[in-house]
Amino acid sequence: MCDPVVVKKRLPNPCNKVFSVFLFFALVLPVFIASPAYSEHGDIIINNYSDREGMRPVIFSHWFHRIRFRCRVCHTEVGFIMEAGGNKITMDKIIKGEYCGACHNGDIAWGVQNCDVCHSAIRGTKTGVRGSHRTKGPGKW
């Protein structure tokens, strides 16, 4: 493939260093630069009971809530433990004002009648954190 006699007249020789560098910048680099950002980093999928009960699993997106509340609000005042799926949240508890229900009561945030806004994941998605090494690299997975 790298016989210069064959390639010389029409095209740059792919074995040429300059051309290889061009190839790298043109083909390889844009793949890294142009890939759009995932906001998923910190999205929690909660599927303790949802699939079994015929609902879509719940997505809790940290970025959305973090813009509006400090960590302490949920992790101290409301009492969420820092483990995906570790809070055994049921709709019963939410309606009583525990967990999500501390805000999602129609007062601070919209109420529990909007089932599909939280239950919005692709069916069958497993409980866990989405993003970073937890799903993309070494570590737990």
Partner: peptide, 18 residues
């Protein structure tokens, strides 16, 4: 800088009303 829209993030159900 762009972020992947929810419908294409492979977590949200693109057919869901959310």
């Amino acid at each position: 800088f762009t972020w992947v829209p929810l419908a294409k993030d492979k977590i949200h159900d693109p057919e869901g009303p959310a």
